[in-house]
Simulated scan of single mutants.
Amino acid sequence: MTGFRMLARTAPLLVLLALAVPASSVHPTTLSLNRVETAKSVDFEDGVVWVLVLGRDAEGDTDAIEMLAFDTASGAASGIGIPRDSWVRLPGGLARINEAWSKGGPDLAARAVGDLVGVDPDFVLVTGFEGFLAMTETVGEVEVRSPLAFETDQGRTVERGLNSFNGEQALDFASSRDNLPDDDFDRMANQQALLLGYLRSLRAREDETGFMEDVTLSALAGLETELAPTDLYRLAQAITQVDPAKVTGCLVGGTPFTTSGDAQVIRADEELARRLGRDADKDATLDPDCQG
Results as ranks from 00 to 15, higher is better:
145 R>I: 14
189 A>Y: 14
54 L>V: 06
233 Y>C: 00
128 G>T: 02
12 P>A: 04
234 R>C: 03
221 A>R: 13
142 V>Q: 03
37 E>F: 15
215 V>Q: 06
149 A>S: 09
59 E>T: 15
255 T>F: 02
227 L>C: 12
268 A>R: 00
126 V>I: 11
69 A>V: 05
216 T>W: 07
264 Q>F: 03
180 L>D: 02
171 L>M: 14
287 D>Q: 10
211 F>A: 08
106 P>T: 15
194 L>Q: 00
204 A>I: 10
218 S>E: 13
106 P>S: 12
46 D>G: 13
3 G>D: 13
227 L>V: 11
227 L>N: 09
77 A>P: 14
211 F>Y: 13
142 V>T: 06
97 I>N: 01
7 L>M: 07
113 V>S: 00
161 G>V: 09
238 A>Y: 03
218 S>F: 11
226 E>C: 14
67 M>F: 11
259 T>D: 01
243 D>S: 06
42 V>F: 12
162 L>S: 10
18 A>M: 08
283 D>I: 13
117 V>D: 10
286 L>G: 01
205 R>N: 08
62 T>A: 00
95 A>N: 11
158 V>Y: 03
164 S>F: 06
156 R>T: 07
122 D>Q: 10
87 W>S: 04
196 L>Q: 04
215 V>C: 02
38 T>Q: 01
245 A>K: 13
179 N>V: 12
11 A>F: 02
202 L>A: 02
226 E>K: 15
245 A>H: 14
25 S>V: 10
126 V>P: 03
95 A>Q: 00
204 A>V: 12
69 A>I: 05
268 A>T: 10
123 F>H: 05
142 V>K: 01
180 L>Y: 05
278 R>P: 12
99 E>F: 03
81 G>V: 07
39 A>E: 00
70 F>T: 11
34 N>S: 13
53 V>G: 02
136 T>S: 01
34 N>G: 12
273 A>F: 04
78 S>H: 07
194 L>G: 02
47 G>H: 09
255 T>H: 05
90 L>D: 02
149 A>E: 06
66 E>T: 11
102 S>Y: 01
3 G>V: 15
260 S>A: 14
37 E>T: 11
